[in-house]
Design a protein around this nucleic acid. Structure first.
Ligand SMILES: [Mn+2]
Ligand SMILES: [Mn+2]
Ligand SMILES: [Mn+2]
Ligand SMILES: [Mn+2]
Lengths: 216, 216
DNA sequence: TCATTTTTTTAGACGAGTCTAAAAATAATA
DNA sequence: TATTATTTTTAGACTCGTCTAAAAAAATGA
């Protein structure tokens, strides 16, 4: 059907499209750690397969067919992550790279049965919604902690950064999904956020606050 | 580490080596449904990586390193097949092609945890032994039914042909792993084998008898 | 043994996916 | 608006894995 490289491009475009309507060549290159010239080549190929809308210098968007493929890859990624954590007892910071490979296992029958085997989970270990077999899922209506005002609060429900080093830091601080937090203060000097959790006070940097998502 | 193509070549060489000591270029080409010239190219590459012993026109054998890689791929293949049948309720004739993809998932930690999750199974759905995490496994001491004399018998314990069409045929005839059979007669005209199973008599062709393995 | 057949290797090409360097188009700014 | 800076595309090359066609080596057998 589609090659591994094509699938990775479609997924990257899908994720970038949630931020900006039309995705640029350079954005894709940065996201896939490749060169703009390589991206241009691939865009022509994906365009020929009518998986993206592409006109030179104009940026790209996914077609309906392309979006369907992208969502299916994300579905696989998140279900495998869930499997690795819930069934094989990996930690949430260990599963992303493995899922990056497993999301390309082609069989849909397999992934549907995996979904059923695990009881149709709704969220992956990082709080991201898992699309169902028709590609439907609730969009995450989450805000970064950095967007909250003082005395506002909520429940930790997702992360923007899936790297092992970030997730391990959160774990160490006890900042895991499901925890309730409240903003006590934002230090104006460097935007450090002081927050309350479990009757404890702790400080997180602006950068961490940007990458930690709260359900309000 | 090794590419997908390299892994498939190593696995093919390993399987062919169980039949003949030194494996020929043409044998590999046939087994992988590719051309002899492609095989020669890959052999040079695998030789450079010291995964095979290769001298021109002489055929190949795996080095210790190459054999280790091959056994690990087979371990992954069989564990995934077991998973698909035992956990996701696929039938034994449905899992081979999926496992062909899954055997290339790289993480050994993952496969070791999968092994543990399933209780360290010793045989895959087709009766083939599953190597443990050190590559150890009992060699299958099985004979094809066609090698048995009249009035000899045993327990169906493996298959030589993993194609869906063959396995479905066996299933339909009730010739599944664990069943006890006994040879009643071999018809000399075409070597059709008449056998007894569950107080029933049934006939199988020479070809089927060649591909159905018995523990004696 | 020597000619013929078979097997294996080499030579040269191709597509996929990538790269660097340079050109073209677009955006920013003086 | 004209010039400069940035972004994007093109041109040409490379690796990987494959192919066909042809040459070389090995096996067969008259
Ligand atoms: Mn992930
Ligand atoms: Mn995730
Ligand atoms: Mn198999
Ligand atoms: Mn098997």
């Amino acid at each position: 059907m589609n090659t591994l490289a094509e699938e990775n491009y479609l997924k990257a475009i899908y994720k970038l499209a949630s931020l900006t309507e039309n995705v640029s060549t350079n954005q894709i290159a940065a996201s896939l750690e490749t060169k703009a010239s390589s991206v241009t080549d691939m865009l022509r190929k994906l365009s020929d397969k009518t998986l993206i809308n592409y006109t030179r210098y104009q940026g790209v968007s996914l077609t309906e067919a392309g979006e369907k493929v992208a969502i299916n890859i994300i579905r696989k990624h998140r279900l495998w992550e869930y499997f690795l954590v819930e069934k094989l007892n990996f930690k949430w910071d260990e599963v992303h790279d493995m899922a990056e490979e497993m999301e390309h296992i082609s069989s849909n029958e397999l992934i549907d049965r995996l979904d059923e085997f695990m009881g149709f989970p709704k969220r992956d270990p990082h709080g991201d919604p898992i699309p169902d077999c028709n590609g439907q899922f609730k969009t995450n209506d989450l805000k970064p902690i950095s967007a909250l005002a003082v005395s506002a609060g909520g429940i930790i429900s997702g992360v923007r950064d899936h790297t092992s080093v970030f997730l391990q830091y959160l774990e160490k601080q006890g900042l895991i999904i499901g925890k309730k937090i409240m903003i006590k203060e934002v230090i104006s000097y460097d935007n450090t956020v002081v927050l309350q959790m479990d009757n404890k006070t702790l400080q997180i940097s602006r950068e961490v606050a940007n990458n930690l998502l709260i359900a309000i």
